[in-house]
Design a protein around this nucleic acid. Structure first.
Length: 560
RNA sequence: GCGCCCAUAGCCCAAUUGGAUAGAGCAUCUGACUACGAAUCAGAAGGCUGCAGGUUCAACUCCUGCUGGGCGCACCA
C-alpha cells in the first residue's frame, strides 16, 4: 500500500525534475527512506541533493523548486517540506493512516507489495550430507531459508524450498563402512575403528536397528557386501531422521532432491555435453575440466580463480559435475531466480557454481548465494568444536530440546546471516525467560487478553468502519499507528535483500510500542468511541504480530 | 602467499544498502502493580563505529593500506 504512495510520488517528482530542466536520462532512481525521527515525516527523499550537483545549483534551492512544482494528493499526503541540507519530507494524511489502520484491524493483507510478480524462485538450503544428524549451523540455515521463502511469497514471488541430498559419493561409502564396523562390534567381534570413519553414537543406533530387524545374518558376508547392503538402508534411516528433526523444528521442504536421480537420468552426461557445446570444457592431464575462469561478470572479471575438474583422469566425475547438473535442472524446471544458502566452509565454491549457472543461461543477478556464517558453540565458557567424526557435536534436536524450536529459530533469525554467531549453550538455556522472543510473544498474548476482556465487558466491535480514528492522538497511539503502517515496507525490504533479520527487529519495536501504549492508554474504558478506536489499534497490532511471527516460523500464543 | 567473512556501548547485536542527533536487548542504577497479565512500563548511565588515509553536500556503510579473529585455497564432498 505504501508502495503505491511511493510510486505516485516518484512520478510526481520525475515530472518536477523535468520541469527543472533535468534530462530524462539523468533522472536517477528515486528512493524513499522512512526517517528515524517522526518530525521528519513518514517518507523522505534525497533526490534534490543528488541532482543539485548536476544542475550546479544549491541543494536547498533545488528542493524548493521541486516542492513548488509537485502536485500532492491531499488525501494521502498532508504536507511536504524542505528539511536539512535538501531533504524533502512527506507526511501521510490522517485519512490515509485511518484507512490503513482499518485494514490492519480487519486483518486484510495490506502489506504485500507484490513486487515479485509471480516469479518462480528456487531456494535451496540445509542440504546436509545424509551421513549424520543435523547440526546447529543446519538449524541456522533452516530457520533463515524458511523465513526467506515466506518473505518472498509474501512479496509476490513463488518460492520453492529444496533440500539437496548428497546420497552418492565417498562420504556415503565411509558411512556404510562405519555402520558395518559397528554392526560387527555390537555382535561381539573385535574391530579397529578407523579415524576417518564416523564415530558418532548415531552410527551405533543404526547398527542396532539393523540387528533388531535382521539379526546377525550379515556377519558371514564380506565387508564389501555388507557395505553395499548397509549403505542404502543406513542413508534412508539418516534421511528420515533429518526429516524428522526438521519437522520438529517446524521447517518443511517442497522437495527433497536426491543426487542419485541425476545419475539415474543421465543428467551428468547431459550437463557435461552442454558445457562442452558452450566451449567450456578442456582436457588436460587426462582429466576433463570446466574452464570456469573464462566466465566473467559484467566488468569482465572472472567469476572463478581456477578451472575445475569435472571428470577425473580415472573417468570418475567429481562432486562438481552433479552439482552443475542439479543447477542446470533448476533452470530447466523454469526457476527465474535461484538462491543457495551454503555453509561457511563452502564460500570458495561460489565462484565455480556461479560460473556454471551463468553458462546454463541464467543471468548472474538472478543467482544468489548466501553464506550462513558459522555458529560457534560455547559450553562452560569454552569453545566447543563440532565434529561429525568424533560425534561430540550438539545436534539440532538437542538444541531444540534445550531452548525450544521457537526460541531457537528466533535466536538465529535476529542476526544477519553474514555475522558469525557465538551460541552460548548455557546462556541460551538460562535466557529462556528473557529471550526477546518472549517479549514479542507476550505482546501478542497481552493483546489477546485485552480483546478477551473487551468481549467480556460487552464493548467488542467487529465493524471497524464506524470507528473514529481521529481519536488516536496520544503520542503512544500515533507512534504505534505509524509502526503498523510501515510493516509492508519492512517485509518488502527484508525480502528483496534476503535479510530476514529485519523482521524480528521490527516486531520487537512494534511490541515495545504496544507495551508503552498499553501502559499509558487504557483500552477498555467508559468512553465508547475511544474504546472502539483503541481496540481497532489492538487488532491491527495483533494481526501484524501474528503475521510477522508466522513469517519467521514462530508461534504467536494467545496465552503464555 | 592468495581469496572470502567479521570487528559498533561492559556483553550480544541493529542501523531501510551513502542520509538528518549511530539504536534495541542483557547487565548496572532510580522509580511504577487494590481497574484490560509487572514475561511490563517510565527514567538514568553507557560511543573517536579496530587503526591510518582517501572519495563528497553527506561515510558505521564505498576505495586503499594496516591490526586482530574466523573460514577456505584437491583429479575430497
Amino acid at each position: 500500500m505504501l508502495e503505491q504512495v511511493k510510486q505516485s510520488l516518484r512520478e510526481e517528482l520525475k515530472k518536477a525534475l523535468k520541469n527543472s530542466g533535468v534530462r530524462e536520462d539523468d533522472i536517477p532512481e528515486i528512493g524513499f527512506e522512512a526517517p528515524k525521527h517522526i518530525k521528519f515525516g513518514d517518507l523522505s527523499t534525497s533526490v534534490a541533493l543528488g541532482i543539485a550537483r548536476l544542475l550546479k545549483k544549491n541543494p536547498r534551492e533545488t528542493a524548493e523548486e521541486l516542492l513548488r512544482n509537485i502536485n500532492l494528493d491531499k488525501a494521502v499526503i498532508s504536507k511536504a517540506e524542505l528539511a536539512g541540507p535538501g531533504f524533502i519530507n512527506f507526511f501521510l494524511s490522517d485519512s490515509y493512516l485511518n484507512a490503513l489502520i482499518r485494514k490492519a484491524a480487519e486483518g486484510e493483507v495490506f502489506y504485500s507489495a507484490g513486487t515479485g510478480a509471480g516469479k518462480k524462485v528456487n531456494i535451496e538450503f540445509v542440504s546436509a550430507n545424509p551421513v549424520g544428524p543435523l547440526n546447529v549451523v543446519n538449524a541456522r540455515a533452516a530457520a533463515v531459508g524458511n523465513a526467506i521463502a515466506n518473505l518472498l511469497n509474501n512479496a509476490g514471488f513463488k518460492a520453492h524450498k529444496e533440500f539437496y541430498v548428497n546420497n552418492v559419493g565417498n562420504q556415503t561409502n565411509t558411512f556404510g563402512r562405519s555402520v558395518s564396523l559397528r554392526y560387527e562390534e555390537l555382535l561381539g567381534r573385535k574391530i579397529e575403528f578407523p579415524e576417518d570413519c564416523y564415530g558418532g553414537e548415531y552410527v551405533k543406533e543404526i547398527a542396532k536397528q539393523l540387528i533388531a530387524k535382521e539379526g546377525d545374518k550379515y556377519l558371514t558376508k564380506t565387508e564389501e557386501e555388507r557395505i553395499e547392503i548397509f549403505k542404502p538402508v543406513g542413508l534412508a534411516l539418516m534421511i528420515e531422521d533429518q526429516k524428522k528433526s526438521l519437522r520438529a523444528y517446524g521447517v518443511e521442504f517442497d522437495l527433497w532432491f536426491y543426487e542419485s536421480e541425476l545419475h539415474e537420468r543421465n543428467e551428468l552426461e547431459r550437463a557435461f555435453n552442454k558445457l562442452k557445446e558452450k566451449g567450456m570444457v578442456k582436457e588436460e592431464e587426462g582429466a576433463k575440466w570446466f574452464t570456469s575462469t573464462a566466465v566473467t561478470d559484467k566488468e569482465g572479471k572472472p567469476l572463478d580463480d581456477k578451472d575445475r575438474v569435472l571428470i577425473k583422469s580415472d573417468g570418475v566425475p567429481t562432486y562438481l559435475l552433479p552439482d552443475i547438473a542439479y543447477h542446470f535442472g533448476k533452470i530447466n524446471r523454469g526457476f527465474e531466480i535461484i538462491v543457495d544458502i551454503l555453509g561457511p566452509d563452502h564460500h570458495g565454491y561460489i565462484g565455480r557454481i556461479s560460473a556454471a549457472v551463468k553458462v546454463g543461461g541464467l543471468l548472474q543477478e538472478n543467482f544468489r548465494v548466501l553464506i550462513a556464517q558459522q555458529v560457534n558453540l560455547i559450553k562452560d565458557g569454552k569453545p566447543f568444536k563440532m565434529s561429525k567424526r568424533q560425534g561430540n557435536f550438539i545436534s539440532m534436536d538437542e538444541l531444540v530440546e534445550e531452548v525450544g524450536a521457537d526460541a531457537a529459530k528466533y535466536f538465529f533469525l535476529r542476526r544477519s546471516l553474514d555475522s558469525h554467531l557465538d551460541f552460548d549453550i548455557d546462556l541460551a538455556k538460562k535466557q529462556t525467560e528473557e529471550n526477546p522472543v518472549y517479549y514479542v510473544q507476550y505482546a501478542h498474548a497481552r493483546i489477546c487478553n485485552v480483546i478477551e476482556y473487551a468481549k467480556k465487558s460487552g464493548v467488542l466491535t467487529s465493524d471497524f468502519s464506524l470507528v473514529d480514528y481521529g481519536l488516536l492522538k496520544a503520542p503512544e497511539e500515533a507512534e504505534l499507528l505509524r509502526k503498523v503502517a510501515s510493516f509492508g515496507d519492512c517485509l518488502n525490504h527484508s525480502a528483496l535483500n534476503f535479510a530476514p533479520h529485519l523482521v524480528p527487529k521490527y516486531l520487537e519495536e512494534l511490541a515495545g510500542l504496544y507495551h508503552s501504549f498499553y501502559a499509558k492508554c487504557r483500552v477498555v474504558t467508559g468512553d465508547k468511541e475511544l474504546t472502539a478506536a483503541r481496540l481497532a489499534l489492538c487488532f491491527g497490532a495483533k494481526n501484524i504480530l501474528r503475521e510477522g511471527l508466522k513469517i519467521l516460523g514462530v508461534g504467536a500464543p494467545q496465552k503464555m
